[in-house]
Nucleic acid binder design. Structure first.
Lengths: 213, 213
DNA sequence: TGTACATCAGTGAACGCGCGTTCACTGATGTAC
DNA sequence: TGTACATCAGTGAACGCGCGTTCACTGATGTAC
């Protein structure tokens, strides 16, 4: 158990070429990594700042310098999650230019991310425990929707364009469908995780067939 | 603030024709009502058994006789939520026999319930804090999906039939779409509650048009 | 190149808090005779 | 119909716990001269 935090701490030092000592090196990144492990094990509901600090091998007050409070740390985890999700969507996007295939590919990627990173996915949407007004959070979450919207519109993704005043209902439908499916799966509607994953694998095609956009 | 709990307590007594006294009358129902108020104000994350007890005007140990622990009380709230949702879906179902209209009507009812009872809706799906194996929870949640599935299949709802081994992908698509839309709205993607509600009102038709089942 | 000093990042002990849970208890209820 | 008694539902004081946060501090870093 303590190996984990030591590992996080030392890997981190090695990566940054810092000797062990009073200063950590990159505590910010280490805390995000530690928090992600905590979330994976205990879920968002069981998260505490103290445990994350303990796990990063640091005193309970240390995180304050970097994140202020638990909300700040969770927001950072959520932001990182949206970045990863955005990358997954972008990767899927790069595989084809066919509009329908782009949409389906992103749908698959969305679900793969959600089922593969349930703790992060939960955190990303737990708006009561994160600061949804934080600029980098907003930016990274907007990018994810922007990518999906571009695929639906059949145009390349342009990072600079923010959400238009009125979202395209077809994009909202796509997003809702995959998001809802992910949530139902994570909430156990299709059985325990492994069963759900198999069920989704079989169902995703036919389910997405119902969407005509 | 204390008026609330007194109100709950006294209304409850009046309803059951019990005098004030050592025994409550129907503490079980009063605790569920008090818990729902707590959830509405503080959200699931801020919920505590003690506060619910306080609010019901009862000592901290009293809930144990009825619910065991916080998990038990939240499960009861969730169960009641699924019953209400099921009723809303059944009411919508009673308005028409046209298949497409049944599906759309249930979709509207689902979203109206979610946006109108956000705290209960959150609780219903917060599987880490409720006992999803509890029989009455399972029954009431299955009923909700059963109603939707019957509409998609174009047949009347039969309470006795449990979920089949393999769910109909079209029903899963419908459920995912409305569930995802509800979650995105509740999580603030479409703006603050009142704005989101208006946005959903305008979007729901076009969004559901994308679903061909 | 060397030194002084401000700034930054982390320590660790301490605090007060609300929580869930336990405990011995007591008042009310309802049933058996 | 009246009484005894078991059972049930609630009390309220107490407990130990982990939490977030504060505090005076100290070790390391980097910059100005």
């Amino acid at each position: 158990m303590n190996e984990d935090l030591d590992t996080v701490k030392k890997q981190d030092r090695r990566r940054h070429g810092k000797p062990d000592g009073y200063h950590h090196g990159d505590l910010r990144a280490a805390l995000i990594a530690a928090a992600t492990l905590c979330l994976r094990e205990r879920g968002v509901d069981g998260f505490s700042l103290r445990e994350a600090a303990r796990r990063a091998g640091v005193s309970p007050a240390a995180p304050q310098h970097h994140f202020g409070d638990a909300r700040g740390l969770l927001t950072a985890v959520a932001t990182q999650g949206f970045r990863k999700l955005g990358n997954a969507l972008a990767d899927a996007d790069a595989e084809t230019v066919d509009r329908t295939e782009r949409i389906r590919g992103q749908g698959r990627a969305y679900l793969r991310f959600a089922l593969g990173h349930p703790a992060e996915f939960d955190t990303m949407w737990r708006c009561a425990r994160i600061d949804t007004a934080e600029p980098s959070y907003k930016e990274s979450s907007r990018r994810a929707f922007g990518l999906l919207e571009a695929a639906v519109a059949g145009r390349p993704y342009e990072p600079q364009s923010p959400l238009p005043g009125e979202a395209d209902p077809r994009a909202v439908a796509c997003w809702s469908l995959v998001h809802g499916l992910a949530r139902l799966a994570l909430d156990g509607v299709f059985g325990p995780p492994d069963v759900a994953e198999a069920a989704i694998d079989g169902m995703l095609g036919p389910v997405m067939d119902c969407l005509v956009v």
